[in-house]
Simulated assay, not measured.
Amino acid sequence: MSRVDLNLLPALDALLSERSVTGAARRLNLSVSAMSRTLSRLRVATGDRLLLQAGRALVLTPYAEQLSQRIPALAREAEAALSRAEHRFDVATLEQCFTVRAGEGFVDLLGAALMDRLQRAAPGVQVRFTPKPDWNAQPLRDGAIDLEIGIVRTAAPEVRTRPLFRDRYVGVCRAGHPLLGAARISLEQWAACGHVMVSRTGQTENAIDVSLEPPNLRRKVAVVVPSYLSAMQLARHSDLFAAVPHSCLGNAFVADFAAANGLQYFELPLAIPAFTISEIWHPRLDHDPAHQWFRTEVLELCRVAYPQNPLEIRAEGR
């Protein structure tokens, strides 16, 4: 398009609609002489006179009449396409599907609240949750997922992260478990009982086992499941113990989730470091206004869900 000057497009639109060099100049805040020179350039570019003198007024040529049906919409479309992205963003009319990779706990305990929040602002938005079998960043790079929620365990240096809330592990067991009568469950008692381990990859050791002291102490793992909610259900219907994030017990939207499911929680008899749940995305979406809005909604949702868990949110980016 080296021979096309798009700056002529708004001038042509003004001339065709005003049918006056003076009126078009006033509309575009130009001098009459500058608009007259622009009309000359347009005549050369189109090979048509466009505007002809008819007494004291100007009239459109037949070709200009044809153009007058097309140019206004074309000028608006060109201006919209070349303006800054945020100027084109209207959340109320947004129609987009966001693909999110998150654990079952987030989906079950916060999914409904998230959708309620999104639908009130953007009824055309859809969310597609996908399973989280691992922490591979390739789906973020490929665009297969738009946002991941969880612990940052990827080695991909380019991903962006923003913390949502702090979490920690607690123990859960069925209400009325015989060991709950004690003032505090000892480490030896806890380790000797049967345990449900949560492992998406099937590994039989995690942060809890690494934290066991003395090193030769091992808990008795009876079953390995891929999700915390599955672990909670097994503990509910047996004498097995499970260790789950505190966030699985409930939140401002789903209060007393564990108690409502016949579970009782207790502090674990060993020190395990707390961890941060974050939202993770690829930098190509940094300045996409729809994605910026969506991840801000996720952040605000978590702030409401866990108000007792204040977390200083740093600026976006890793």
Rank of each mutant, 00 (worst) to 15 (best):
Val59Asn: 05
Ala80Ile: 07
Ala14Asp: 04
Glu279Phe: 03
Ile71Asp: 00
Trp190Val: 00
Leu67Asn: 00
Ser199Leu: 07
Asp146Ala: 10
Ile185Lys: 01
Leu270Ser: 02
Thr38His: 06
Val210Asn: 07
Ala25Trp: 00
Thr22Ile: 06
Leu268Thr: 07
Val210His: 11
Ala144Arg: 15
Leu82Tyr: 11
Ala34Glu: 15
Val210Ala: 14
Arg56Gly: 09
Asp142Trp: 12
Leu240Asn: 03
Thr130Gly: 01
Cys302Thr: 07
Ala64Ile: 03
Arg141Ile: 11
Glu18Ser: 06
Leu94Ala: 05
Ile145Thr: 06
Val244Glu: 03
Asp209Ala: 11
Ser31Trp: 04
Thr201His: 12
Leu8Asp: 09
Gly105Arg: 04
Pro226Val: 05
Arg295Thr: 01
Val170Met: 06
Ala271Gly: 14
Ala231Val: 03
Leu140Cys: 05
Arg19Gly: 03
Arg168Trp: 06
Ala207Glu: 13
Ala207Val: 09
Arg141Phe: 13
Arg43Met: 11
Asp5Val: 11
Arg160Trp: 13
Leu301Asn: 04
Met1Trp: 08
Tyr265Lys: 06
Leu311Met: 01
Thr154Phe: 15
Arg141His: 13
His237Pro: 01
Ala11Met: 11
Met1Leu: 13
Thr99Asp: 13
Val221Lys: 01
Thr93Met: 11
Leu50Arg: 02
Trp135Glu: 13
Gly55Tyr: 05
Arg76Thr: 15
Asp13Met: 06
Glu316Val: 08
Trp293Gly: 02
Ala14Val: 04
Asp5Phe: 10
Met35Arg: 02
Arg117Gln: 15
Leu16Gly: 06
Arg174Asp: 02
Arg101Pro: 04
Leu67His: 00
Phe106Arg: 02
His287Phe: 14
Pro131Thr: 13
Asp146Ile: 03
Leu110Lys: 05
Ala207Cys: 12
Ala235Phe: 00
Glu312Gln: 14
Gly317Leu: 11
Arg162Pro: 03
Phe257Trp: 09
Leu217Ile: 12
Gly143Leu: 10
Gln138His: 14
Asp288Ile: 00
Pro283Tyr: 10
Met232Asn: 02
Leu67Ser: 02
Pro10Phe: 09
Val196Ser: 04
Ala252Gly: 14
Arg141Trp: 03
Pro245Glu: 00
Ile151His: 04
Thr161Arg: 04
Leu42Val: 04
Glu86Tyr: 11
Leu147Met: 09
Gln292His: 15
Ala243Ser: 13
Glu297Pro: 02
Ile313Trp: 15
Ala315Leu: 08
Leu180Asp: 14
His282Asp: 11
Ser17Trp: 01
Arg314Val: 09
Val100Gly: 03
Gly47Ala: 10
Leu28Gln: 01
Gly176Arg: 08
Arg128Asp: 14
Asp142Lys: 12
Phe98Arg: 03
Glu205Ala: 13
Glu316Gln: 07
Ser238Ala: 06
Leu229Lys: 05
Val127Ala: 04
Gly317Thr: 10
Asp288Asn: 15
Arg295Cys: 00
Arg314Pro: 07
Trp293Ile: 08
Asp142Gly: 09
Phe294Asn: 01
Glu158Thr: 08
Cys302Tyr: 01
Phe257Glu: 12
Glu316Pro: 10
Gln66Cys: 13
Leu67Thr: 01
Ala155Trp: 06
Ala11Ser: 10
Pro10Gln: 08
Asp116Trp: 02
Ala315Met: 08
Asp167Gly: 05
Gly105His: 03
Thr296Phe: 06
Asn309His: 14
Gln96Tyr: 09
Gly176Thr: 08
Ala112Asp: 14
Ser68Met: 06
